[in-house]
Design a protein around this nucleic acid. Structure first.
Length: 736
DNA sequence: CGCTACACCCAGCTCATGCC
DNA sequence: GGCATGAGCTGGGTGTAGCG
């Protein structure tokens, strides 16, 4: 998009321009999208810059992306709009979407409103569709960006701000209220939370003459909230609230945003910060000495903080499938009986007596496992599971040092908040009623590979202590002896990691299928259709599984077709072969990105990464076919990473130009292309067959083959194939 | 860069204990 | 003795660090 410098534009009197359609290029969840207003609207234009009402823009956006408001009970959005009045058209934040929508509609003819949040600026361009009769000659291009903000983070952010202001003393109550302006603040005020925050702040100031040196204890920081339930302030609609329980803001709730991967999911980091109702009763009892140990987990069913082990179980409700954390007895009960352990058993023996500490281990053996788990320290991991909320309370490292779990054997109240630096963690309030729930379906970071998590963390604002800080803090921590002990007995019989991985990938059934069927070549394509979650294999079937691939200590010997060691030789052109490579861990990508052979090859050959560094499912094998990738794979670990990083911000549009004809209406899929690079296109998962298709799908009528044919028919593709053969010959010559 | 050693998680399993 | 309960154990799965 050409962006003439407005400073050099010829000046013209600003006027109202009636009946112009808006072209809205917006970024949502990392995807570039396009929407157009259905009907022309009036804009206020000066030179080639036009001002339009934000609500009119959002109306069109909402029509195109209804998920924005569909998730309004859980998320809000920070809105950024390209400011065309500046030379470089920076993205300027306009505040929360809920705030913008709550504002009265502005009159754009009133020039005093042009710089307010309710008005957005765009650039007037000539419409490419002007050849269509009745279509406007001009359109206004407006660029926006929507950044997801989870509701719970708003509360956390607010609390951080209050605590920060209490320390800094530089922000008055009025300033804080101005900063925190929004509907969610109103909700807090209606619930009386706002006043409690003010009281808390004042109490902090009254107690200490020098608050800047003061370390606010997490427990005290929460004191204002312990007496009353807190509901998560809704921005667009109120979440359902169980009046019996109140709402516990935080448990181990999955958090796509916060799972930047820089912190571990170690239980000690999952802290409940705001609780009420029955949970408070339990807390009270625990504070009276009934807590033997606490490692941060809380049973979803009985709310106990004590368990010899914690068990994850998958269940579902109206909101979908989610994972819950259960204590050992509740977990066993749930697994065996498919129902939650009745309340009468909670914390009691069957005869109703509370379980005395001495009876908590029928076995008289050493309590090694228990000790290990109790003393378990957070470990730096990049790939860990979603984090619970990390609401900011302690603002100094000193505070963090003062209460490490290993140095503080006193049972920690569940009110305690995990100390984190300033800056709250966005946490979705998927389920404000339930603790320890991890939404499986809604968490795109689950099972992310480490560099995926890292990449995504880099896109997030820094929220936690740095990885270096964490690493240094964890480096001196004592090491569990269990792993070492077990390792001594295991290691001799255990295959290498790679061999283990190979065994995990190639389960007996797949292995047999791959080897028994002559039509199936044992290549990476096999991974495309395999089920994930190898951990679900039972011990018995693990041990007795016939046909298991032989394990050796040599990964290459057990998996000859994994991870090619060098640039693969150029295979013959096989037009019918299409490779589907959705990640085994990312089973439901939003869409696949297709690359024509030319793009594939150029990106591959231009990659600096060794082929062996690619995961198996993205290893370059065949450059002669249309290759499909899930976006996450393409973006994070494919040889096309750089390529796709460069184009992912560009809008994909319906395929109407270049060598990529639009799919016919009969096709049950959506295909969009990048106008500047028709060889890069997206296949949306409307076509479920795309994901269920095996790599051997050769039906000429499949959309994939149509796409393949399209790509291969492009002059771009032929050229690339010729080039690839040349390169292949060159490689052979060089090797010789 | 590839491999190995180490560490940790967790689902499934084992079995001690107590009740009926 | 059978059954229920629940703590502890086992070992596969997987990530990371370090070494050659």
């Amino acid at each position: 998009m050409s962006t003439p410098n407005p400073m050099h534009s010829r000046r013209a009197a600003p006027t109202m321009r009636p009946k112009i359609k808006l072209k809205l290029l917006y970024e949502l969840n990392g995807s570039s999208c396009l929407a157009r207003t259905q009907f022309p609207v009036d804009v206020f234009a000066a030179n080639d810059i036009a001002f339009a009402n934000f609500k009119q823009c959002f109306s069109a956006i909402n029509s195109a992306s209804p998920e924005i408001l569909a998730s309004a009970s859980e998320t809000d959005y920070a809105v950024y709009v390209a400011d065309c009045t500046e030379a470089d058209e920076p993205m300027v934040g306009r505040g929360l979407l809920s705030q913008l929508l709550a504002r009265p509609e502005v009159d754009i003819s009133d020039t005093s409103t042009l710089l307010t949040g309710g008005v957005v600026s765009g650039r007037i361009t000539s419409s490419l569709l002007s050849f269509i009769p009745g279509h406007a000659q001009e359109t206004v291009e407006i660029r926006l960006r929507f950044v997801t903000i989870h509701k719970a983070s708003q509360i956390a952010s607010l609390m951080s701000m209050f605590l920060y202001s209490s320390i800094q003393q530089s922000l008055s109550d009025e300033q804080v209220s101005q900063i925190c302006d929004g509907r969610w603040i109103s909700d807090l005020q209606e619930q009386g939370i706002w006043e409690q925050l003010l009281e808390f702040k004042n109490s902090v100031l009254a107690e200490d003459d020098n608050p800047t040196r003061r370390i606010i204890s997490p427990k005290k920081a929460l004191s204002p909230f312990q007496s009353s339930p807190i509901t998560v302030a809704p921005a667009l609609s109120a979440p359902s609230v169980n009046p019996d329980e109140g709402i516990r803001l935080v448990g181990k709730i999955s958090d796509p945003q916060s799972s930047s991967g820089l912190l571990s999911s170690s239980p000690s980091r999952h802290q409940t910060i705001i609780r009420s109702g029955r949970a408070q009763e339990i807390d009270k009892a625990k504070e009276q000495g009934q807590v033997e140990k606490e490692n941060g987990n809380e049973c979803y069913n009985c709310r106990t903080l004590h368990a010899s082990s914690w068990r994850k179980c998958t269940t579902h409700d109206d909101d979908g499938v989610f994972t819950i954390i259960l204590c050992n007895p509740c977990g066993l009960w749930f697994v065996n009986k498919k129902e939650h352990r009745p309340r009468k058993y909670w914390g009691k023996m069957r005869d109703g007596r509370p379980i005395p500490p001495s009876k908590r281990g029928p076995r008289k053996k050493s309590d090694k496992t228990t000790l290990v788990k109790a003393e378990k320290k957070p470990v730096l991991k990049l790939h860990d599971k979603p984090l619970g909320i990390q609401t900011s309370i302690d603002l100094t490292n000193d505070a963090r040092k003062s209460t490490p779990s290993s140095q503080n054997p006193t049972p920690v109240s569940s009110h305690t908040m995990a100390p984190t630096p300033m800056g709250s963690t966005p946490v979705p309030s998927h389920h404000t009623q339930g603790l320890n729930r991890t939404h499986v379906q809604e968490n795109p970071h689950l099972n992310k590979r480490p560099f995926q998590a890292l990449t995504q963390s880099l896109q997030q604002p820094p929220e936690f202590e740095s990885s270096q800080t964490l690493a240094s803090r964890t480096a001196s921590l004592p090491v569990s002896d269990r792993g070492a002990k077990r390792h001594k007995t295991d290691v001799a019989s255990r295959p290498s990691c790679d061999a283990v991985h190979s065994a995990a990938i190639y389960k007996p059934t797949q292995f047999q299928a791959a080897t028994s069927s002559p039509a199936v070549t044992p290549t990476m394509e096999s991974t495309a259709t395999m089920p994930s979650s190898p951990g679900t294999q039972t011990r018995s079937n693990r041990a007795s599984a016939p046909g298991s691939p032989p394990r050796t200590n040599s990964a290459s010997s057990s998996t000859p077709f994994l991870q090619p060691k060098a640039l693969p030789p150029l295979p013959p052109i096989t037009p019918q072969k299409v490779r589907l490579t959705p990640s085994k861990k990312d089973k439901t990508p939003d869409f696949l990105v297709g690359l024509s052979p030319s793009r594939w090859l150029s990106a591959y050959l231009g990659s600096s990464r060794s082929p062996s560094q690619f995961s198996s499912h993205t290893s370059p094998v065949d450059h002669n076919t249309v290759n499909f990738f899930s976006e996450s794979d393409l973006f994070t670990e494919s040889p096309f990473r750089g390529l796709y990083q460069g184009v992912r911000s560009e809008p994909f549009t319906q395929s109407t130009a270049g060598s990529m004809p639009p799919p016919s209406a009969d096709d049950d899929y959506n295909m969009n292309v990048l106008p500047s690079s028709p060889s890069i296109f997206r296949m949306y998962k409307d076509n479920s067959d795309l994901f269920s298709s095996s790599s051997q799908s050769t039906e000429a009528t499949s959309p994939i083959n149509k796409l393949q044919q399209i790509a291969r028919n492009s002059p771009d593709a032929h050229k690339s194939l010729e080039e690839s053969e040349e390169i292949g010959n060159t490689n052979k010559t060089n090797k010789a």
